[in-house]
């Protein structure tokens, strides 16, 4: 019971509070800014030469307010927004007019989840293993070489790195496709050609994410392992003749992994932000591209829908990792 009270309940409370604050921010930010989406939409129509008489203008304002969830007092709107969040119904999109926002998200989500989730995990595993080995053999030449490489790659902003990869491998030497999730016009089918096509298109975006993400994990893991390696209990195990493989995996890795698990939770939080840039650079058909189109066309329903869902998804992922954490760290379990 002490575990539930001291570990579980504070986390559940902060989970709920963070979601509450996040959704509230998503609701209020557009409302505190001076621009009015309804008048903006109408102004856009007018500037394209549409003529509206006062009566139909009035009707249009009302319709738009309903579609944007802007009818009633601020409090009523706020309540309605929560209802929208929980039912997953964010109204219709404006940039692909009658299609509901939820449906647009549903078609785009598998692409993003497939690419981002998978590469985030892969770079974590890869960076940690290589980092741990480099930290353990920190005097060797390959370890120093990798360290220098990481020092150069690490500070590059993702956009520049991805863009350079794209130009190099898709434009200068044309090994990989320059854009898209599959070849144009290919229909989804459960065949080898289709799966191969998807993988081939995903390779460059995945590579950019794994290398840049992996470099960060590599550096932190190497540093932590170097520190753990200098601890007395590791020296003792070495003197006691414990096999080296066992020291690395059971003594060092096990201890060094703990902060990295928390780091994984935080990096899952950045997935959707990452998706936006990745998918724009590689014109990948996921949520990021959808969001970009929503931004450029001023599609408020779609933007709020994606942001609200991503807050829900991210906080839930972090909660799950937090709840799994005691499995890795016995000290939390027995405190």
């Amino acid at each position: 019971m002490a575990f539930v009270k001291r570990y579980l309940i504070p986390r559940l409370i902060s989970y709920i509070l963070v979601i509450f604050l996040g959704i509230t921010a998503v609701f209020f930010i557009p409302r505190f800014t001076p621009s009015d989406p309804v008048h903006r939409t109408i102004a856009q129509l007018m500037s394209r030469g549409t003529y509206l008489d006062p009566a139909s203008m009035e009707a249009m304002v009302e319709d738009l307010q309903e579609l944007y969830g802007l009818e009633g007092s601020l409090l009523q709107q706020y309540g309605a927004f929560w209802k929208r969040t929980f039912t997953g119904d964010f109204g219709v999109s404006f940039f692909q007019f009658p299609t509901p926002v939820s449906e647009l998200i549903r078609t785009a989500l598998p692409w993003t989840a497939g690419l981002l989730l998978w590469t985030t995990m892969l770079s974590w595993v890869f960076g940690n293993i290589v980092g741990a080995l480099a930290g353990y053999f920190s005097r060797s030449r390959w370890s120093k070489a990798l360290d220098t490489l990481a020092m150069v790659v690490r500070p590059l902003p993702y956009y520049i790195f991805a863009f350079a990869l794209l130009i190099l491998f898709a434009f200068v030497v044309r090994w990989f496709p320059i854009a898209g999730g599959t070849a144009i016009g290919r229909l989804p089918a459960f065949t080898w050609t289709y799966i191969w096509d998807v993988l081939w298109h995903a390779f460059l975006p995945a590579l950019s994410l794994v290398v840049l993400g992996g470099a960060i994990w590599f550096q932190t893991m190497k540093l932590i392992v170097q520190n753990v390696n200098a601890e007395d209990f590791v020296q003792y195990a070495k003197l006691g003749g414990v096999r080296e493989g066992r020291i690395v995996s059971r003594y060092i890795m096990r201890n060094a992994m703990l902060p990295q698990i928390t780091g994984l939770a935080l990096s899952l939080g950045q997935i959707l932000s990452g998706a936006l840039i990745t998918e724009i650079v590689f014109s990948y058909p996921g949520v990021g591209t959808l969001l970009f189109n929503a931004i450029t066309s001023g599609d408020y329903n779609l933007i709020m829908g994606i942001t609200a869902l991503s807050i829900l998804g991210v906080t839930t992922a972090i909660l799950v990792i937090d709840l799994l954490y005691p499995l890795f760290d016995p000290r939390v379990r027995f405190r």
Binding site: V18, G22, T33, L266, G269, I295, T307, I311, I318
Partner: peptide, 15 residues
């Protein structure tokens, strides 16, 4: 820290 800050910055920048 846990909020998708980039999305929120993008939303604000857009407005």
């Amino acid at each position: 820290l846990v909020m998708p800050l980039f999305l929120i910055i993008v939303m604000l920048a857009l407005l």
